[in-house]
């Protein structure tokens, strides 16, 4: 299990307008492409010096493929990264604040302490 890699997905997609749209429209293909092409990139190094060991486990891959933000919360993905990316993808489909409140409602079964987000 890699909370770090989940966060890396959310972080690198959120900062790239094209990836935000690809992930919104075709999450399964985007997750597959990202794991193959982005997961092992070290952001401060050139491509010839990538990592070799980073991969999602099945639960992580499934949560990302299904746009399952409550699942990402349970897995310990950083809530700020998840929220920011999902607002970018889905706020446009709702009334003002509607998506944010729906998001809170879908997490309303969660009680303290929340899942650990330490990486």
């Amino acid at each position: 299990m890699s909370k770090y890699l989940l966060n890396k997905f959310l972080f690198t997609v959120d900062r790239d307008p094209e990836l935000v749209e690809r992930y919104r429209e075709d999450p399964a293909a985007t997750v597959e492409m990202w794991e193959a092409e982005y997961a092992n990139r070290i952001l401060g190094c050139h491509r010839g010096e990538s990592s070799s060991w980073l991969r999602f486990d099945d639960a992580e891959r499934r949560a990302l493929r299904e746009h399952d933000y409550p699942g990402l919360f349970r897995l310990g993905a950083h809530p700020f990264l998840t929220l920011t990316l999902f607002i970018a993808m889905f706020e446009r489909d709702h009334e003002p604040l509607g998506f944010q409140l729906e998001y809170a409602r879908r997490l309303s079964h969660m009680t303290l302490p929340y899942p650990d987000i330490s990486t």
Binding site: F73, P79, F80, L83, L97, A104, S108
Partner: peptide
């Protein structure tokens, strides 16, 4: 609260 059940109250 950001990205949790108590957000945007």
């Amino acid at each position: 609260e950001l990205g949790g059940p108590r957000q945007f109250g």
